[in-house]
Design a binder for these strands. Structure first.
Lengths: 170, 170
DNA sequence: GATTATTGGTCAACATGGCTGACATAAAAC
DNA sequence: GTTTTATGTCAGCCATGTTGACCAATAATC
């Protein structure tokens, strides 16, 4: 910031470019979530249910506290959503074998089906965007998004990736 | 979709990559909005106020219906936010000179100050992400985000850009 | 000039999904 | 045996989205 000389046009272009990023982020996120929201509304669910379903599907057997760490919401908020998902049989809870206080979370078949449906519409959108932009652009896209993350989130995200790789290989 | 043969690993990698996009989008948007949310909370405002302030600042003299078209929320929702912003003197409304039904929206000095502060924290985050990723990545980032937009939004976004360019030149 | 359409607002009611605070229980850890 | 941890639950609050009904001022049209 301090090292860029505000020589008229140069600074202007920079701010324009940054604002373009801010705006695209808003519009893209809204449209990106819109389709899934519609499907969820049919089942009387919202985005919060989606997030729980998504990350449980992605990390079968995840504990409540691990899920809380990913979502960064209060346990009361999560509990409300989780209770509903168990009630409607999208999710089951199993007592942890090592630590019996834990509730390990799994999707039911019903849950898996919904997760697939939701992920598919979002993946389709991404597939289209990736195809249009080209694989070169995709790498840039991911790099910028990673750069937008809080350092803590950045660590989490890469940790999640590693955990999954380990699960595949082990 | 149909033209890609699911030869084991290839399909797996593709789905992994798409899921990575989905997840990064969630985390990045959350962290991206987090800082501004904190500032807004100090002033007893929320994200909805921010969006109104942002787009009014970006398009001084915008009408209510134009703003509605950008935000895609109901006029009742916007009206609530707008009333609060006028009440707290972040925004002023002027009767349209051509069509007297219109209320043209402008930021007050107070509003401009808040907008700057909010945009600055977000711009700073983007500046860091852009710097880390490199200017090549930035172009890819923008291209992918554009590809994620609904076609209608895509038209809107480019129309907004054009309108601003015209305002500068004319 | 009368009718219709547009712009904007208002009131009421409701849902979702965040939040805080207080409290409870089971089990693990020390 | 005490303390800490993992989880859940109840109650209430707030922000922000939604519908639906209705109204006023003004512009546009027949």
């Amino acid at each position: 910031m301090a090292d860029i000389k505000p020589i008229g046009k140069a600074l202007f272009l920079r701010e324009e470019e940054l604002r373009r990023g801010i705006e695209l982020m808003f519009f893209a996120y809204r449209d990106f979530t819109g389709e899934a929201d519609s499907i969820l509304a049919e089942q009387n669910m919202g985005r919060a249910h989606h997030r729980a379903i998504y990350f449980i599907g992605r990390n079968p057997g995840i504990t409540v506290s691990e899920l809380l760490a990913i979502l960064k919401i209060t346990k009361q908020s999560l509990s409300r959503v989780l209770s509903a998902l168990v009630e409607t049989e999208y999710v089951v809870q199993k007592t942890g074998p090592d630590d019996r206080r834990q509730r390990l979370l799994y999707l039911t078949d019903r849950g898996i089906a919904l997760e697939s449906r939701l992920t598919e519409v979002q993946a389709r959108r991404f597939a289209k965007a990736y195809r249009d932009a080209g694989m070169n652009a995709v790498e840039g896209f991911q790099r910028v998004l990673e750069g937008l993350l809080d350092p803590e989130t950045q660590r989490q995200v890469s940790a999640l990736g590693h955990a999954r790789k380990a699960r595949q290989n082990g």
